[in-house]
Nucleic acid binder design. Structure first.
Lengths: 199, 199
DNA sequence: CCTATTTATGACCATTTGGTCATAAATGAA
DNA sequence: TTCATTTATGACCAAATGGTCATAAATAGG
């Protein structure tokens, strides 16, 4: 049916490899030569498939955030009858995902990294993160509201404040994990924080 | 006494201006041309005075961290008899400093920014931040220990955990402030967190 | 004045960057 | 076999980068 020379790799596989490089190095610090080395493709093919560097980066970042979201959504759905456990499990799993691809490479959270080195200078990237992040936060807020309705007075703060502080904690832990902290210690601190919040 | 052509600007003033640019844009995203524009000096002079780009950046980062440290140290010394108030005041002041230079420019914390876009790729920068950050943390830990000894059982966690969670919170707030959050909201969240910790 | 010294200047350089494009290779269909 | 189509390749390009250096300007002292 299809004519034409066959692909060396599927776009999804190329994107996955590009994502790893952008995740580890950031947008500015990653050159197309790095992407070429990681994917095994020459730049002509990359530009033909993805447009330009920024589009490729945004596709990789979207892939990262979609993957992150779907995995947490699955956990939440599976534990739908235990919102507190669902929240804890999903948040801890988020931390674990930030190191899964390579034990020695401290990537942190690709979105938090981008929030520092790309989003402030590019409205498109900023909006992409904003949107995907909001989708994740909505899920967490739903759980927090459920917990709050099940047992008003359990939470040490309004649902909005609780949600906000979880966000701050996750971003802070991402920075720590990118530098010194190992996953285990991060999980411990996260759970301590959740205890403090009354979750 | 001194011969030679007089300086256009003092190195300290040059460094201050370079710091502002690095703070706002990060190391990689800042070119020597940006520094030239900000300082009014030509690259020859800059290289003669500071060596290379990395040395200039490290000098600027050190200046930032020293300034940050000294201001907080002054607050702490002034409130030496009220360690809890000293800690609260110093931490809130840190947040305020991150926006003082420009209301519309969201710089966040220059050290946290560097922890994302420079430190992972440069051991010298990493060690500089580690060292200066440790000095600040030591001051906070001394206050936490004092509070703990004054009233054991007040804190919701060991001093080490409390210190760690303050660090996580500050770094998380820095990310938020660099993107959306205004200083006032950040102060509110910080104080809520300190309440939770029993401070 | 002249000289030594310090600083400022901007032309210059090699390298790297993101990006383009003409060409070649590999397929299915006619 | 031929042709249209799709993908891969790498030479090529203009612009920007960090960095150097010879020269000029501005001072103090002799």
């Amino acid at each position: 049916m299809n004519a034409g020379r066959p692909r060396k790799s599927e776009p999804e596989d190329i994107l996955e490899k590009a994502m790893q490089v952008f995740w580890a190095q950031g947008y500015e610090a990653t050159s197309m030569a790095d992407i070429m080395a990681a994917t095994g493709l020459h730049k002509g093919s990359l530009y033909q498939t993805f447009g330009d560097k920024k589009s490729l980066f945004m596709a990789a970042l979207a892939r990262y955030l979609d993957h992150m979201f779907l995995e947490q959504k699955a956990i939440i759905d599976q534990l739908a009858d235990q919102p507190a456990l669902a929240l804890r499990t999903a948040l801890n799993n988020m931390l674990n995902m930030k190191c899964e691809h390579n034990d020695t490479l401290h990537g942190g959270c690709m979105a938090v990294n981008s929030l520092v080195d790309s989003a402030p200078f590019d409205e498109d990237i900023s909006q992409l993160i904003e949107h995907k992040k909001g989708r994740m936060i909505n899920e967490f807020m739903k759980l927090i509201m459920q917990i709050h309705e099940q047992n008003p007075g359990q939470l040490n703060g309004s649902p909005e404040v609780i949600g906000g502080m979880i966000g701050v904690t996750m971003q802070g832990l991402s920075i720590e994990m990118k530098n010194n902290m190992d996953v285990k210690q991060a999980n411990t601190m996260l759970n301590h924080q959740l205890n403090l919040l009354g979750l």
